[in-house]
Design a protein around this nucleic acid. Structure first.
Lengths: 150, 150
DNA sequence: TTAAAATTTGAAAATAATTCAATAAGAGTT
DNA sequence: AACTCTTATTGAATTATTTTCAAATTTTAA
């Protein structure tokens, strides 16, 4: 018997969910078929990207959250998007933004703990094109992904 | 006939979704009843907070994304969590973290455009307890909420 | 006012989730 | 290894939800 949990968590983190039409119908005082029509429209217009789960990240070995400000080495890459899409493959990285100001990129990273973060940083933050980084540690999360924690 | 879209988007942003057991069963080569059992367990243990939609935020009037570093006025509040939970009520705020370093708090804010951000900042970033802020603008989003954009 | 397009709805059909009892697998003890 | 206890998986039946589709309604634009 294999442990399904890690596989389920990985799938739910990015998708494998669906809107609850009956609940939405009740909350908006309309019929399920009307919601169905409206949701299909949002989906086909690309308004909705996916449906996913939000976790208590402490309980899925991702309780250590770090924001990483990144300076990119202009000589080493074609465009910030190129490094960005490489980084996007790492499951530890929750978000990647190209930003204004002193730093070119901001990452949000989730690992189990500080030592797993150290492993991540050795592996990822030394990639060609990444010149310098500064990390800000999250001590406490009040809201994530529009969802209040606690 | 009222326009359901804004109401649906607001609901889906925080919840009103459900895991697709049949899909998860297929992907993990197990039975739907097994997935059902495992998911109920994750839910009752508080591992899963909610199921929600991820949007193309440009298409839901929230394409302008800003990270706000915040210094808190120690005289004005009991604890950072108190200001945090006040801020958590604003629908424009995607995430709130208490962080290490020069700044005490990091917000991620989504508005329609720069002028709506200005309205937000006048309304919210002048609340008692917020001493000083610095905002970093997102020029391009590569990944959000663990989901690759584009 | 009228015609066309977009949205809502109801009924029926198709899928999917839930319940529950039986079975199987794993963990720990003797 | 045999036994017991606990945890996890499964199949069958029930219940609930989603999907389809045609008809009706509402909105938009001329």
């Amino acid at each position: 018997m294999k442990n399904l949990r890690p596989e389920l968590i990985a799938l739910l983190k990015k998708g494998s969910c669906t809107p609850r039409l009956s609940k939405l119908a009740a909350k908006t005082h309309s019929k399920a078929t009307t919601i169905h029509y409206n949701i299909k429209q949002l989906e086909s217009q690309g308004v909705i990207k996916t449906y996913k789960a939000v976790f208590d990240y402490k309980k899925v070995d991702a309780g250590f959250c770090t924001f990483v400000l990144v300076n990119l080495d202009k000589k080493e890459y074609k465009s910030p998007e190129d490094i960005g899409s490489m980084l996007a493959e790492y499951p530890e990285i929750e978000s990647i933004d190209i930003i204004t100001g002193e730093w070119e990129m901001l990452l949000k990273v989730r690992t189990k703990d500080i030592s797993q973060y150290y492993e991540f940083s050795k592996k990822v933050l030394s990639l060609r094109g990444i010149e310098r980084t500064q990390s800000l540690n999250s001590l406490f999360q009040i809201k994530t992904e529009f969802v209040k924690m606690q």
